[in-house]
Design a protein around this nucleic acid. Structure first.
Length: 264
DNA sequence: ATGGTGGATGCTCCA
């Protein structure tokens, strides 16, 4: 089972790139974030026409939005609200083999890493805390669960272009990386990308639109993650980040991240 | 220290 997560930054604007991605890598499940699309305007037909017939969406006008796009049937679709907001940041489903996939778009957190002065930063930390409580209370380490998405946190020194220069920048501050560690501890989650590509290898999945030359300056961060619970660890086959997608025409600022589980 | 770009929307918000 090949699983890809991608913050597409508008599914309608980039439907062509989504089809190109599916055509070239044929994942079983594509998990999108920032679809920025009300459910009734989601381009279902374009995906179904190339064999991705099973689709679940949780979208809204202008902001956020997530989707599960699959070649294989799934059930128990669930879209939860977090921090008492209906802002379309989660969707999940149960796939063949009794594997549950949770797709998240964690709030970015604004510019200032101070919960007193920045409500968005407080919201981000509250969101992480609520995710941690939810998985602690509702799932077990022995369950087969996959957690993917744009978590908007680059936890390790080798997940950013400069640990020193980003230590006070939202996405890489100690309080955020600690919140991610707390979440990781709930079910002993395994970071599949890092399992295959250990530190100190630099890994990025996002490069700002604001750079003059994203590739040459290469000031990236690894914000997009695929985690699995312990029962799935032995199945992790390949894991890769499609850096070249940042160079596609009219790209998203994030690139697709993929993990293959070699199930029996 | 600052501003740089991009998407959706509708004269601004968010990343």
């Amino acid at each position: 089972m090949r699983i890809t997560t991608w913050n597409i930054n508008s599914v309608r604007l980039r439907i062509g790139l989504a089809l190109k991605l599916l055509d070239q890598s044929r994942p079983d499940v594509l998990c999108l974030q920032e679809t920025k699309c009300p459910d009734e305007q989601f381009p279902f037909e374009a995906f179904r026409d190339i064999g991705y017939k099973y689709i679940a969406v949780n979208g809204m006008k202008a902001y956020n939005g997530v989707a599960l796009i699959s070649r294989v049937p799934f059930e128990s679709e669930l879209a939860l609200d977090w921090t008492e907001r209906s802002d379309c940041r989660h969707i999940s489903g149960v796939f063949p083999g009794d594997i549950e996939i949770h797709n998240f778009y964690v709030p970015a957190g604004g510019d200032e890493p101070d919960i007193e002065r920045n409500d968005k930063f407080a919201h981000k930390l509250d969101f992480m805390s609520e995710m941690t409580d939810w998985f602690s209370s509702n799932r077990k380490k022995s369950d087969k669960v996959v957690l993917v998405g744009d978590l908007n946190i680059a936890p390790l020194e080798s997940d950013v272009w400069s640990h020193k220069q980003l230590i006070k920048v939202v996405s890489h501050t100690p309080i955020e990386t600690l919140s991610l560690t707390r979440l990781q501890e709930t079910l002993n989650w395994i970071d599949t990308t890092r399992l295959i590509h250990p530190e100190p290898k630099k890994l990025y999945s996002w490069w700002s639109y604001r750079a003059r030359d994203w590739s040459t300056s290469d000031k990236g961060r690894r914000l997009d993650h695929i985690w699995v619970t312990p029962p799935l660890k032995s199945y992790i086959g390949e894991a890769y980040i499609l850096r070249e997608a940042r160079g596609w025409e009219k790209p998203s600022d994030h690139v697709p991240v993929t993990t293959k589980l070699d199930l029996d």
